[in-house]
Each structure stands twice: as C-alpha cells, then as structure tokens.
Amino acid sequence: MLIDSHCHLDFPNFADDIDAVMERARAAGVGAMLTIGTTLAKAPQVIGVAERFPNVWCSVGIHPHEAAAEADVQAQTLIEMSRHPKVIAIGETGLDYFYEHAPRAAQEVNFRAHIQAARVTGLPIIIHTRDADEDTEKILVEEMGKGAFPGLIHCFTSGPKLARTVLDLGLSISFSGIITFKTAAQLREIAATVPDDRILVETDSPYLAPIPHRGRRNEPAFVADTARVVAEVRGVGPAVLAQQTTENFRRLFTKADFSALAA
C-alpha cells in the first residue's frame, strides 16, 4: 500500500469527481491520504473531506501565502482545532520567498506558532519551504533548541545542506512529482541518500503532476508514479519503497487510526 502524505482534496479542482478520484487512488494501490489545511477559515471543509472517507486524514494550519491574511495566529488556536479525531498534523506552514505573497516577518511568526502547536500536541508539523533554505534552517534549529517536535519538509526541493540539517534534527523528508522531472537531477541524488526510516512520498495534488501526467490535474493515484522513480534512484523495488514509506507515515503520524481501513 502507498500513502499520499500530502494532497488538497478540499480544493475546487476535485469538487465534481471526488468519488472517482478516490476510486482511481484505490485502483493504483494508494490506500490512504492526508489532505492538508492551508487556511483556518477553510478548516471545516478540510475536516469535512476527512470525515467523509475512512482512509483520509487531515491537518490544520495556515500556508505561508496566507500568513498576512490570517495574521496573529495563536498556537492555542491550532492546538484546540487539532483535537478533532481526524486531524493528525499541524500545517502546512513555513516560508515561501519565491512568491512572497505575505511579508517575511508575518511568515516567520506564523511558522513559529505552528511549531509551538506541534511541540505541545506532539503532532507532526508539515513544513513548506521555497527559496528560503537559510531562514528555514535557522528557525528549525532555534525552535528545536527550545524543545523537540516531530515533522517533515513536504515537497522537498531544497539543497543538500538543508536536507542534512532536517535529518540531523530528526525530521523527515517527503518527495513529490517534481522528482520525476528531467531538471530534478540534484533532487534525485538527495532522495537516494535519505535514510530508509525518514522518507515519504506525496502528490501535492492538484498541483505538480508527475511524468507521465504533466499538464494534467494531479491526483492521489499519481503518487505511484512518484514512488516508482524514488524507488529506482534508491535501488529498491516499488513494493519495498511502498512498505517503507507506509511504515514511515504510520510512525510519524501516530494519531492516524488505521483500524478503520481494515473494517
């Protein structure tokens, strides 16, 4: 079984055919999904999708793009929202200096509040970082010094230095369909070196469809194509990679109730 560790099933892109999307995921061997919160205002919709399907869980958080629109978030707010049984993670949060839809200072405040919520709840923090390696590393090192917290860098596209720091801090790394792109040679080199117990795979759907689906709406079924490339660069078979990443998901997202999947 594969698990799509990061998707956005509440987005309008899936409104018309969500049941078909779920069926295609099942047919592709994708047994579970984590749908990700990007704003607190839309958290009810994210939770609603997770409540509808036994093999879907969710997170609550504020994407760095939304850090100004939903400013002054308090860790306690995230902590309270995370009490829902389907909420198994905090985020996504982090820093995005590529688009900078929100001021950097607001992004940092947002990021640190999410880290505090992850530290208190023990739920993993889902970190988005783009063109912000230096500040992401600084914040993670500083915050880990205040007290440990679990988490991962999702859709990893950074360099080897941040990868080493993240792994040294005890965090995990998730790879998206970007790893299948011809231009992603360095990313494939990094994926080959991540420890077996610290790697996950995702789609980030509806974005970043992997080869051979480029130009199409991405969906959880396509995580199988990403996993195939990750397995290849790591020198293992797809079944081994699927087992490792599923075990890693279960180890990291300990609140996820897998008993419902067997029912």
Results as ranks from 00 to 15, higher is better:
residue 136 T to P: 04
residue 181 F to V: 12
residue 162 L to G: 08
residue 135 D to Y: 02
residue 221 A to R: 11
residue 172 S to P: 14
residue 13 N to H: 14
residue 118 A to K: 07
residue 167 L to D: 04
residue 35 T to P: 00
residue 100 E to M: 15
residue 136 T to A: 10
residue 196 D to A: 15
residue 126 I to R: 01
residue 54 P to M: 10
residue 160 P to C: 10
residue 170 G to K: 15
residue 85 P to C: 10
residue 96 D to E: 08
residue 194 V to H: 04
residue 190 I to Y: 05
residue 27 A to H: 14
residue 44 P to C: 03
residue 229 V to I: 15
residue 37 G to T: 14
residue 22 M to G: 00
residue 60 V to R: 00
residue 202 E to Y: 08
residue 238 P to F: 13
residue 162 L to K: 01
residue 88 I to F: 05
residue 225 D to Y: 11
residue 27 A to S: 15
residue 57 W to H: 08
residue 17 D to K: 04
residue 221 A to Y: 12
residue 186 Q to K: 06
residue 200 L to D: 14
residue 200 L to Q: 14
residue 136 T to H: 10
residue 225 D to E: 14
residue 140 L to G: 00
residue 7 C to N: 07
residue 42 K to A: 11
residue 211 I to T: 04
residue 66 E to T: 03
residue 250 R to K: 14
residue 20 A to N: 01
residue 90 I to E: 13
residue 138 K to I: 05
residue 125 I to Y: 02
residue 4 D to A: 14
residue 114 H to T: 13
residue 182 K to V: 00
residue 227 A to F: 08
residue 16 D to G: 10
residue 31 G to H: 06
residue 189 E to A: 07
residue 141 V to N: 12
residue 64 P to K: 05
residue 26 R to K: 12
residue 151 G to A: 12
residue 103 P to A: 13
residue 135 D to C: 09
residue 12 P to Q: 13
residue 104 R to K: 15
residue 182 K to M: 02
residue 235 G to V: 01
residue 182 K to L: 01
residue 226 T to Q: 12
residue 237 G to N: 06
residue 7 C to P: 06
residue 108 E to S: 11
residue 133 D to A: 15
residue 208 L to R: 03
residue 60 V to N: 01
residue 80 E to Q: 14
residue 65 H to I: 07
residue 251 R to K: 14
residue 256 A to T: 06
residue 112 R to Y: 01
residue 165 T to P: 11
residue 18 I to D: 03
residue 51 E to V: 14
residue 67 A to I: 03
residue 42 K to H: 15
residue 44 P to W: 05
residue 21 V to S: 08
residue 116 Q to P: 06
residue 48 G to A: 10
residue 129 T to A: 12
residue 16 D to F: 08
residue 244 Q to I: 00
residue 254 T to E: 15
residue 235 G to Y: 01
residue 100 E to I: 15
residue 48 G to K: 01
residue 94 G to V: 02
residue 91 G to Y: 10
residue 7 C to A: 13
residue 205 S to W: 11
residue 206 P to S: 12
residue 26 R to H: 09
residue 176 S to M: 05
residue 245 T to E: 10
residue 200 L to V: 12
residue 1 M to V: 06
residue 84 H to A: 12
residue 215 G to H: 04
residue 7 C to T: 09
residue 236 V to S: 13
residue 256 A to H: 00
residue 125 I to C: 14
residue 126 I to Q: 09
residue 49 V to H: 00
residue 147 G to C: 07
residue 52 R to M: 02
residue 255 K to Q: 15
residue 149 F to E: 02
residue 143 E to S: 03
residue 26 R to E: 15
residue 212 P to C: 03
residue 260 A to K: 09
residue 246 T to A: 11
residue 150 P to F: 03
residue 47 I to T: 07
residue 254 T to A: 11
residue 14 F to H: 04
residue 177 G to M: 11
residue 3 I to C: 03
residue 116 Q to A: 13
residue 47 I to N: 00
residue 76 Q to Y: 07
residue 33 M to Y: 00
residue 63 H to W: 01
residue 127 I to A: 07
residue 91 G to R: 02
residue 56 V to T: 09
residue 187 L to E: 15
residue 94 G to D: 05
residue 27 A to D: 09
residue 228 R to T: 11
residue 132 A to M: 05
residue 122 G to Q: 03
residue 136 T to C: 12
residue 208 L to C: 05
residue 52 R to W: 04
residue 100 E to N: 13
residue 91 G to P: 06
residue 190 I to M: 12
residue 98 F to L: 13
residue 178 I to F: 07
residue 163 A to H: 07
residue 114 H to N: 10
residue 31 G to M: 14
residue 114 H to G: 05
residue 8 H to G: 07
residue 227 A to K: 07
residue 184 A to E: 08
